[in-house]
Design a protein around this nucleic acid. Structure first.
Lengths: 359, 359
DNA sequence: AGCGTCAGGGCAATCGTTTTCCTTCCGTTG
DNA sequence: CAACGGAAGGAAAACGATTGCCCTGACGCT
């Protein structure tokens, strides 16, 4: 194996650097060594370190000092072999690790780290083979549970049936209603967007979003239309389906302007679309938010802050979804499995693109 | 523990769903059970499944079928207990998982996954306490090695001294030259940027970048100036240090224009800066790339593609850095530790912002 | 003084797999 | 026919931590 490809520059350390690292540990100490140093048996040492059994305080202290001195950390393999639990969960991102997976991952790691549980990360890259391979790997490592995440909210077939460990789906959901899924309430998010636009006085509202075959796009669009209808309004234009890109946002702006529809607000299916729309509208002489107010979706920092004006957006609270999924997984591991699809509400983050008084 | 906070909508599965999941596994099968089913001893079963020992082909097959039938996956805890290796490495991202960590992570996971090694992910969030906590956790889990990554290329103190397992730093580097670090060659990247601008005929080149106290900013700036000097040129303006944001890019455009410096190209310290600059320049009536050519840094897809025109940029090959770090770690685990700072070259990705003939 | 009680701590089994010896059986050869 | 050798597979130790059980003193009570 050639570790480095292409040109590589290497600075080697200067030789003859005589200082020895202090406290060097060649091999991790075992509890027997700790016990020997403390002058007790391994069993007693275990009790001392885990606060079990009946020990003289002085003995306990002696063992603890010995452990400290040797830098003892219990071998997790041995411990889990005997406990039957590994205090480890697997996290499979079915599509690549990306913008959506990360907050989920952080949220999950947050909730699990507090419970002394470590996370095995697996990136299946949209490949069912890799997915099953990782699943087997995780099962072989006797994880206590598995979190499955992905980039799209659309329901997917269960990753496995009759698995020996609990599984929770985060962001994506399983088609099997008996599985436990934690997803964003996208319809609720779309409702908040429309209601916010209504609240700031807009009445001629259009919706520009991603591909029609994309679950999120259709769910959000339907909810937006429902909310408008509930207010006795029609959309100012037909829903424009396209892609999740700035380029499509710019293009959509042209379409809206050319139809002559008197649009005073656009709810966009993503922040990227909104940003493209904002740019093109302003180039065409429409002021944002004065003439047209904009609401995005995702609350992606780099987009909402980079856009001018800054974008009002819907935050799906991905971190919260990851955290909730992890917490549900922990309770499932403790014997109380949850079922069904848990939809978490998002928040609307108001910014300049829907300001009432833009001065 | 309340798993869900805030409003939550739950759809429960319809009760009375009578179908039993097929092949349900309550408890993972052990090798003894496989052995019993195949009519051999556990030791023999182990040999059969691992291709060791002298066994009749027919016996081997019988064991394999039994394993298949029971869905046997070897208990990794037991295996690593006896092997002294866990086929697991830890990955500590010292600052939060972000845009830079992900490609590193993907690259590392790529190189390791192929070697049947799993990754423990830990996010220390810039907190030294968390960092040491995770380090202990990883050591307790007997990882075979540790990869340390971060968001900044600046050298950092070693995460620990005399650790019982090899450590490789990726993207960041360790201040201890005896440690192994894999970093992008930022100076080389800056050189490529300047040489590209020279190659497309620009001579009055400015540099706008991030904070002066930021290692990457100073390294890139120094290399840019050196490259210009080597071509017998002065920079068209003083290096402008600011922040890594679009807003700063826009502001810097104003500064450059107001000084009256006849700039025909700007090398930007990041794609965000370049995007802001592109916007502001064009609003001021300068065409990109006709009047001013732009080169960014990072090759961040959403920036280089969202910008108009699309940005030429320097790609640090983060994925390659992650992969190389992982490969070096694997060889270190196998007893051949590498030392020193390995700088990997980047690539310049040409796009419209430096096109010679923009028509 | 004798017995019971309990604190303190050692012993050994256990978890599941691998691996190092053995044992057994069969065929071959001197 | 005896001895040897190799093939096939079994028995058991080992990895390291935990834990239930047991042992040993010391102390108190009658």
């Amino acid at each position: 194996m050639r570790p480095c490809q292409g040109e590589v520059t290497v600075w080697l350390p200067e030789p003859g650097n005589g200082e020895e690292t202090l406290g060097a540990i060649d091999r991790a100490a075992t509890i027997s060594e700790v016990a020997a140093l403390a002058g007790v048996s391994p069993g007693t040492a275990s009790k001392a370190l885990n606060g079990r059994g009946a020990l003289r305080p002085e003995t306990r202290r002696r063992v603890q000092e010995a452990a400290e001195q040797l830098g003892f950390v219990a071998n997790a393999a041995a411990r889990s072999l005997q406990a039957g639990r590994t205090y480890t969960v697997g996290m499979i991102t079915t599509d690549s690790i990306g913008r959506f997976s990360i907050p989920l991952l952080i949220g999950a790691e947050d909730a699990l780290g507090a419970g002394q549980v470590s996370v095995f990360l697996c990136d299946a890259r949209d490949d069912p083979i890799r997915e099953q391979y990782y699943l087997r790997t995780l099962l072989g490592r006797q994880v206590d549970g598995i979190i499955v995440t992905g980039r799209r909210t659309q329901a997917r077939p269960p990753i496995g049936v009759g698995l020996p460990v609990p599984v929770v789906y985060a962001f994506i959901s399983s088609t099997d209603p008996a599985d436990c899924s934690v997803v964003p309430d996208e319809a609720d998010g779309a409702r908040r967007a429309i209601e916010h636009l209504l609240a700031v006085g807009r009445r001629r509202i259009a919706h520009v979003t991603g591909p029609e075959h994309h679950h999120s796009a259709t769910v959000r669009a339907a909810a937006a239309l429902r909310t408008l209808a509930a207010a006795g309004l029609e959309p100012a234009a037909n829903v424009l389906f396209g892609e999740w890109s700035e380029a499509w946002g710019r293009q959509a702006a042209g379409i809206l302007l050319s139809t002559g529809a008197e649009v005073d607000a656009v709810f966009c299916g993503s922040d990227q679309i909104a940003r493209g729309l904002a740019e093109a509208l302003q180039e065409a002489g429409r002021a944002v938010p004065r003439d047209v107010a904009l609401v995005g979706f995702d609350n992606w920092d780099v987009m909402v802050d980079g856009s001018r004006p800054a974008l009002t957006s819907i935050d799906m609270d991905l971190e919260g979804i990851g955290r909730t999924a992890a917490e549900l997984l922990l309770t499932a591991i403790n014997g109380e499995p949850a079922h069904g699809r848990h939809a978490l509400p998002g928040r609307l983050i108001p910014r300049a693109s829907t300001a009432v008084n833009p001065f």
